[in-house]
Simulated scan of single mutants.
Amino acid sequence: MPAQASVIDTAWHPLVNGHAPPWASGWGEDRFGVFVEITVDDVTQCLRWIRPGRFTMGSPEDEPGRYGDEGPQHEVTLANGFWLFDTPCTQALWQAVMGDNPSEFKSPDRPVERVSWNDAQTFLQRINERIPGLDLTLPSEARWEYACRAGSTTALYTGGIKILGDNNAPALDPIAWYGGNSGWEFDLENGRDSSGWSDKQYPHERAGTRPVGLKQPNAWGLYDMLGNVWEWCADPWHDSYEGAPVDGSAWLDDGANTGANRVIRGGAWVSNARGVRAAYRVRSHPYDRVNNLGFRCSRVQP
């Protein structure tokens, strides 16, 4: 079992008197905790409750595959809980809100991809208009990592990682679609050529995204936090965590409105093993549209 980070003890419950928020179409509680649902047309999306807490953000210097921009490690305290999509935004939900589907690997239950950071902002504006009071945003980088870790302190939310080759880390196979397994028995005809990828965990010739929710979730009921598609965060890119907020908020500064690169997290179907860890972080231009980049939505609870 992975080591556990500390979690603030709170009696506050996200639902009042057993009623869903007015913007939700349903709610429930299971072994992962409380969830709510939103519905656009006939498409329903689950959001998981991420309780307040504190965690250590970033990776230790001895973590296998670590890059220098994953530090310095620092404690972050989230005083407020938040709701988070339990999967990346699907093509079905995008289609219901936006009326189109830009994805290369088309199927309703796959993550939407080929959407820029700016495209995601348009989606957020439109879905919030459709459902008054919903107030979805992109998660901050800190909230994303806190949710991904789900109380763990290790490279993966299931424990450590042993990297046997560029695309071979057996601990990833149960939880993530990455370069080592994303082409294994791939089911679409338009998969990208993966024949030249080195050290694959499983042999494959073409690869791409997979339907959401097929791999094991983390301890808070979140699927595909690692692998499948990269996920946009709210924050502009910073080369390290020197001076980063310690309250979980997005790190917005003078570069926030200048077209600066934005943070993406989680790794993707095309990523090598070291790029699919809870602390791994990359930048992308807010206009970029690529077939391994999507997003999931959050709502911070006041």
Rank of each mutant, 00 (worst) to 15 (best):
M1W: 12
A5L: 09
S6W: 13
D9R: 14
W12P: 01
P14K: 10
N17V: 07
H19G: 05
S25F: 08
W27L: 05
E37Q: 14
E37V: 06
I38C: 11
T44M: 11
T44F: 01
C46K: 15
P52D: 08
M57A: 08
G58W: 00
P60R: 15
G65V: 04
D69V: 08
D69A: 06
E75G: 10
N80S: 15
F85E: 10
D86I: 02
T90F: 05
T90E: 03
Q95R: 09
V97G: 11
D100E: 13
N101M: 03
P102F: 09
S107N: 12
P108Q: 06
D109W: 11
R110D: 04
V112H: 07
V115R: 06
W117S: 02
D119W: 02
F123K: 09
L124V: 08
E129K: 12
T137L: 10
L138Y: 03
S152N: 07
T154R: 05
L156D: 03
Y157N: 08
A169D: 06
A171N: 12
L172I: 03
G179E: 13
E185F: 10
D193I: 09
S198D: 15
Q201C: 07
P203Y: 03
P203K: 08
H204S: 14
R210F: 10
W232Y: 08
W237T: 04
H238F: 02
S240Y: 02
P245Q: 06
S249L: 03
S249Y: 05
A260V: 11
R265V: 06
G267V: 00
S271M: 03
A273I: 10
R274V: 13
G275F: 04
G275H: 13
V276F: 01
A278H: 05
R281W: 01
R281G: 02
D288Y: 13
F295N: 12
R296Q: 11
S298D: 13
S298C: 15
